[in-house]
Design a protein around this nucleic acid. Structure first.
Lengths: 217, 217
DNA sequence: GAATAATCAGAATTAGAACTCTTAATCTGA
DNA sequence: TCAGATTAAGAGTTCTAATTCTGATTATTC
């Protein structure tokens, strides 16, 4: 992306991004046509290509903006002690609530990003790192809130897996809306939070005691 | 898809499907080129189009084959009492093991199906129904294996949500392989099973007791 | 072993969307 | 105000991959 020197082009770039975000509610990156984008912004192909190397660069930039903003938001939240520390459940509830609202606000880009074709270049990587950032911040909080017996045995592994399930489930909601619960349903945060809190709390012996080896299917 | 009258074309159709499955390990439906497919099967464009209306119909057929086969497999498994009934954990373990191995076997098509662009036609629907079928079969088993206090309060809802998390997590693994756990990791089934069993067992009062309302993020 | 139907071959066509390129307009600084 | 730099217009080009179409080839039937 070539940086703009003049105000008009700076404005135009913003318009491109905003209109793209709007369009992404209906289509994904493949379906996002540069022609359409230019029409919608009352602009032209030439203007677009004098700013962006190509469509891919534009899309990368769009993703990057979101990732950057989100990362800052996360950092800020933790820096200002916004995270509740009274119990594991309320901490997890806070995490989940924040995550869900992020998914709701950015549904279009997220869906498009998930679908973006990646032959070699793993275009989801910036998004993935976001989950990593979240997990890294949350981990010490969670460990502190966990009773010592639960914390002792592989809690960190369970936490990481819990995060993976959390974001996996939300990605899936945004991607294919499988039902019965959708990203916009009011019960969804509660279900998610209680489920992963439950899992994090569980001790490995719970599982061992209860799961005798079953025959292969 | 026009049904084949002669043996040679029946064979060819099978070859098309098999080769497509092989190709889908590397590319998705967009990247699956008919030209390539025909080369790989030592066949020709003409042969392909004398069988299939167009590429989309071919892809639909491919998906349908998988969905049909899977549905039958599920029905058969339950019909022959393959499901363990000694404990919730072993039943869930069985479900998860079966599901994971299905994902491992069919990773390519699944990934491609997840990514398939759907403007209006929701091409994932047949796959989604599969989850529904699974859940419908499993539900009564689970209810029977649940202690009465857990079963009483919204257990059905929790079961459905657990299934949604299970398949959401696996879809996500296949789609973007987020880590730390992958669909091929040997620990994955255990983690998945213990996590959803835990959640299904939990009573709503667990959650209520433990989650005081936290301030919005 | 023709006659007819089914299938295959594959060059040529089409279509859609990204991108280029040249000319025109607009801005900026002196 | 005007010369040079930046930006915008948008018709035209290019590229890619699906699809069409017509003449062979191969199977089936009587």
């Amino acid at each position: 992306m070539r940086p703009a020197q003049q105000l008009r082009s700076r404005k135009l770039i913003v318009e491109f991004f905003n209109e793209a975000l709007a369009l992404l509610k209906d289509v994904d990156f493949d379906g996002l046509s540069i022609d359409t984008l230019c029409e919608r912004t009352s602009s032209t192909i030439g203007a677009f290509y004098s700013r962006f190397e190509n469509k891919e660069a534009f899309v990368d930039a769009l993703q990057l903006i979101l990732v950057r903003a989100t990362r800052q938001r996360i950092e800020a939240d933790y820096a200002t002690n916004a995270a509740p520390t009274d119990s594991l459940e309320s901490f997890i509830g806070w995490i989940v609530k924040g995550a869900i609202s992020w998914y709701r606000r950015n549904e279009g880009v997220i869906r498009a990003s998930l679908r973006r074709t990646n032959k070699e270049a793993d275009t989801w990587i910036p998004m993935r790192d976001l989950v990593g950032v979240q997990a890294a911040h949350a981990l010490p909080y969670i460990m502190r809130l966990l009773p010592s017996d639960a914390a002792a045995n592989g809690a960190e592994e369970r936490v990481r897996f819990a995060f993976q399930m959390l974001f996996g489930t939300m990605n899936n909601m945004v991607l294919i809306n499988p039902g019965p619960f959708g990203i916009h349903d009011p019960e969804t945060p509660r279900m998610l939070a209680s489920s992963i809190a439950q899992f994090i709390r569980s001790t490995p012996s719970d599982a061992k005691r209860r799961v005798p080896p079953s025959r292969a299917r």
